[in-house]
Amino acid sequence: MRAVVMKRKRLATLLCSLLLPALVITGCARPTERLGSIPAPPESGRLRVYFKVISSGDPRFGWKQTEAQAETKLAPIIARVLDSSKVCELVDGADLATVAGGQPEAANYWLRDDRRLAREVGRALHADYGILMERHLGSFTAVRYLLINVHTGAVFEVSSLALPAVQVENFFRKNAVATWKKLYRMARKDLLRAALDKGAGRLPTTAGAPVHVVESAEPEPEALALPVAAANLPTLAVYDFAAVEPLRTAAVILADALREELLRHGKVLLVNRENLNQVLQELAVGQLGLNDESRAVEVGKALAAGQIVAGHLGALGESAVLTAKRIEVESQKTAALASARAAQGKEDRLLEGMEDLARELVKGL
């Protein structure tokens, strides 16, 4: 009889060891608790983004850091990356803890039902997007990042290849800028639409099923080595377009899109945003100061740029109009002019005009 009891205990232990991972994966471990609430934050033209670390895979293997510890280490890096983009700002970690502190850390809770919990947390935080970093540990180790529009459900995902466990813990810390650049490029049209809706006080909408875009964590084209011939190309700095406050974030996104198109043309060497931000800080010049052409030229000289591109995004009647010009730093002469136009309410279509805008601006180079 005793042998039978012991056999049953061993069988029960074996079943538990097999079923525990499945319980976590299927979301049966424990119920979701009610979300907390925070006051509405001060108005800002930037898009609010929260950052959350979640885990998946076999819990028996464990992690060296808890999700909260990983968030504490990574949040300052995320904050710097988002701040330098001039498009987004990170939700304070204390606010995230207030709203979602009682929620499970298992990825399934956050991603099931079309990422319902992730979106509900975002709305409770008065956020526009959430960045979820999912750590997977099991027969293989990997990490992926999901940028989720909490209003429309659109998802932009960067998935890594299988990584050694030690690399997963440090992956985002070492690749935060590159990963954000990829997510930003993938989601640019969605971010632009969100910024325009926010600036105009419109409710975000989506037509049909939410988009879900997936790419691997490969380096962006601009991160690759330039050919030797590039050394002979003129250096060009593209400033963020001037705009009134409701359009300022959208203007930054459009300027970034223009940079990418100019880079694709291969006729110039571009000053990157990091160097531009650094020089602006050193010279104590804000983006608004670049509206003064003489000041813009001064910054161009500090950047060792022979050419600069400056422009303006504004409304004209029932249209949104983007104008840009290329200026020779040494002579301060206007070398090229270009413009793009879109109907109000459909300003995100300006993105489609960036290729033509870039082509006009590089004429004569």
Rank of each mutant, 00 (worst) to 15 (best):
K182V: 13
E261A: 00
T179M: 14
W180R: 08
R185S: 14
A187Q: 08
A242W: 01
R185W: 13
Y184D: 15
T235M: 10
L263D: 06
M186H: 09
L283Y: 05
V213N: 05
L196F: 10
P221G: 02
A217E: 12
D240L: 01
V228L: 14
L192D: 09
R248I: 04
R193E: 15
V213S: 07
H265I: 00
H265T: 02
A207P: 00
N272L: 02
A230R: 09
V252R: 02
A187Y: 09
N277Y: 07
V268F: 07
L270V: 07
A187E: 11
L236F: 04
R248C: 09
A255S: 12
F241L: 10
I253Y: 02
E282M: 03
Q287G: 10
N272P: 10
P246W: 09
R202H: 08
R185T: 15
V285N: 02
L224V: 12
P234A: 04
A250K: 01
P246K: 06
G266F: 01
G208I: 02
A237S: 11
D190I: 07
P221R: 03
L262H: 00
V244Q: 13
P210Y: 03
E222N: 12
V211A: 10
A243G: 04
L233K: 08
Q287V: 14
A223H: 13
A242V: 02
A250M: 06
T206C: 03
A194C: 09
T205Y: 03
E220M: 15
G208T: 03
K181L: 15
A284G: 09
T249R: 01
A229Q: 14
R259S: 05
V285G: 03
V228T: 14
L254A: 06
L258M: 05
A195E: 00
V214K: 12
E261Y: 00
P219W: 08
V228G: 12
E220Q: 15
L196G: 06
